[in-house]
Each structure stands twice: as structure tokens, then as C-alpha cells.
């Protein structure tokens, strides 16, 4: 395609990074809450990686968006602040406020994981962490869903105009969030001194790996329904989705990189390591290299999904004139 894209790599990067950040935030906060014991549950050591990561992809992604604004490129560097003068029913307006609150909450949530954080006693830190987690879970989910609604709001873009797109983005966000947490943990975790907390680390790893396999299962189902229902219509939507099928310009990227490398391969590897514990109650053991490889594949798949969707929406349109 020779034509320039109205929304290019910065928007694709934003959709991916906001998804990773929102997913990591939701996963971290919910596993922390599930761990119990006030401020120090059994999953807290793993939840820390998600908490400390979450704000950065969201902030960087939002920053990319500002760089792509026409006003910014024309030299009106602060024109984007107009977004904060209005709240209307445009998904972008609602999303702006939502993502701003999410960034704020994710920063506070991350701060409660900073050891010896200035200005807070340990008790205050734990208490704050508990309160903020309850906000972080829904805000992360809302941010991930909104990235899909942003694209879905336009009848003039038949590829995007599907209610299941937002659900697909939510599942992908949670899955890439899990992957990001596992990746950071595999890279930076040093064995804990007490055997008890090391046992927790392994158990949390098992739960996250099993959850990711399940999320990928749901994601495959969402993709299947998205493509199948589009294929079953006549007209604009069917024409639009044809870019994903035989002869379509995005077919190989979609099938090989996203579906096979980004979903099926990591899910099979995860299932291979999860099944011994799940079915036979054996020890959960996964080599660090495999853990890293799976996480990278899931993240690459998540980026490819955003790339394929954003490009496909723009190279297709209503047929006829």
C-alpha cells in the first residue's frame, strides 16, 4: 500500500503499550488482593514486578500519542492540553480522562511497593496498597477495553466496527500483562532467603502461567468469532476482513506471527509445563529460558495484533460510493 496511514506506528505502539501497562496493573493488583494477609500476601513478591512496571508503558504510550498529534507536529506543543478542557462522549475524550486517572493510580500503586518509601510508614504503605489495588483492577480493565472502543466507534471503518474488538484487546492486554510480569521476574528475580517465600514464587509462577494459557484460549476464541462473523456477512465487513485471509496483504503477519507464534506456540509450551502439576500434582518446574521465550512470544503477538488491526482498519473501508 502506497498511501500514508492516518494513524501510524505511534498509535500502534500506544495501543500495545497501554494494553501491557493496563494488563500488568490489573493482574498485579488482583493477584495481590487474592494473596490475602493485608499488605503482604503470598503473591506480593511477583505482584511487585507488575506494579513497578505498569505506569511506564502507559505513560510512554500516551507520550507517543502526543508526538503524533498534528498540532504537536505543527509546533503547537501544548495544544493537546485542550483535551483537559472538555469531557464529551467521544471515546477519545473519555479515554483521556480514564488514562490520566489510571496513570495516577498506577503511580500511587507502584509507590506502595517502593521499599522505605519516603513519607509512609510500613503500615501506611500496606494500607494504601490495599485501598489502591481495589481502584487499580477496574481502571486497568477499563483502560484496556477503551483502546478497543476507540477504534470500534466508527461505522466508516468496518474492520474496527465490531463489538468483540474491545474484548479481544482486553484479553490480549491481560495476557501481555502476565507475560510482562513473568518476563521481568525471570530477568530480575534473585532467589529469596526464606524457603517459604521461594515456594510462593514458584506457586505464583504456576498460577500466572496457567492463567496465561487460559487467557490465550479465550483470545483464540475471540479472534475466531471476530473473523468468522465478519466472514459470514456480506459487504463491507466481509471485504474488510478479507485482508486477513488467502491473498490478503496482512494474512501472513496475522496467521504466522500473531496466531501461531504469538498465541498457539506459547500456549502449547505453557500447557506442557502446567499439566504435570494440574493433573498429577507434581512439582511445577519451568526453565528460566523457556519462561523468557514464552513471554517474549506473547508480547510480540500482542504487538502484532495491534499492528494488524490498526493497518487493516485503514486499508479497508466501505465499498461502493
Amino acid at each position: 500500500m502506497s498511501e500514508e496511514f492516518t494513524w501510524g506506528l505511534p498509535v500502534i505502539g500506544y495501543l500495545f503499550l497501554a494494553g501491557v501497562g493496563a494488563g500488568a496493573l490489573t493482574v498485579s493488583a488482583s493477584m495481590f488482593l487474592r494473596g490475602g494477609e493485608g499488605g503482604r500476601g503470598m503473591h506480593v513478591d511477583t505482584a511487585r514486578y507488575g506494579a513497578l512496571l505498569a505506569p511506564f508503558p502507559i505513560i510512554i504510550g500516551s507520550g507517543l500519542l502526543v508526538l503524533e498529534l498534528g498540532s504537536f507536529q505543527a509546533g503547537n506543543w501544548f495544544r493537546f492540553l485542550n483535551l483537559y478542557k472538555v469531557l464529551n462522549l467521544s471515546p477519545m475524550s473519555i479515554g483521556t480522562w480514564l488514562i490520566t486517572f489510571t496513570i495516577g493510580v498506577s503511580l500511587v500503586y507502584a509507590y506502595t511497593y517502593v521499599r522505605n518509601a519516603p513519607g509512609l510508614t510500613i503500615e501506611q504503605r500496606y494500607k494504601l496498597r490495599n485501598v489502591v489495588s481495589w481502584l487499580a483492577v477496574p481502571l486497568g480493565i477499563a483502560t484496556a477495553v477503551y483502546t478497543g472502543i476507540l477504534l470500534g466507534a466508527m461505522p466508516s471503518r468496518p474492520f474496527w466496527n465490531s463489538p468483540i474488538l474491545a474484548l479481544l484487546f482486553l484479553i490480549s492486554a491481560l495476557s501481555t500483562g502476565v507475560a510482562a510480569i513473568l518476563l521481568l521476574r525471570a530477568l530480575f528475580h534473585r532467589a529469596a532467603k526464606e524457603p517459604e517465600s521461594e515456594r510462593h514464587i514458584v506457586h505464583t509462577g504456576y498460577l500466572l502461567t496457567a492463567s496465561d494459557a487460559m487467557l490465550i484460549g479465550f483470545e483464540l476464541m475471540a479472534v475466531f468469532l471476530f473473523a468468522m462473523y465478519a466472514q459470514l456477512t456480506i459487504g463491507n465487513v466481509r471485504e474488510a476482513v478479507s485482508v486477513l485471509f488467502t491473498g490478503g496483504s496482512l494474512a501472513s503477519l496475522f496467521w504466522i506471527v500473531f496466531i501461531v507464534l504469538g498465541l498457539i506456540v506459547p500456549a502449547l509450551i505453557e500447557i506442557y509445563y502446567v499439566v504435570p502439576k494440574l493433573l498429577y500434582h507434581r512439582e511445577f518446574v519451568i526453565p528460566k529460558g523457556v519462561e523468557i521465550g514464552v513471554a517474549v512470544l506473547v508480547l510480540v503477538g500482542g504487538f502484532t495484533l495491534r499492528y494488524v488491526v490498526v493497518v487493516a482498519g485503514q486499508i479497508t473501508g466501505p465499498i461502493g460510493i
Binding site: T6, L69, G70, S71, N82, M92, A153, G313, Q314, P318
Partner: peptide
């Protein structure tokens, strides 16, 4: 003078 150039309307126009 108000438009921020987000290009959402450009996408939305059929």
C-alpha cells in the same frame, strides 16, 4: 485554533 490534530474525525469520515 481548538483542534489538536488527533485525526479521529479523519478516520470517522466515510
Amino acid at each position: 485554533d481548538v483542534c489538536i490534530g488527533c485525526k479521529y474525525c479523519i478516520q470517522a469520515c466515510p
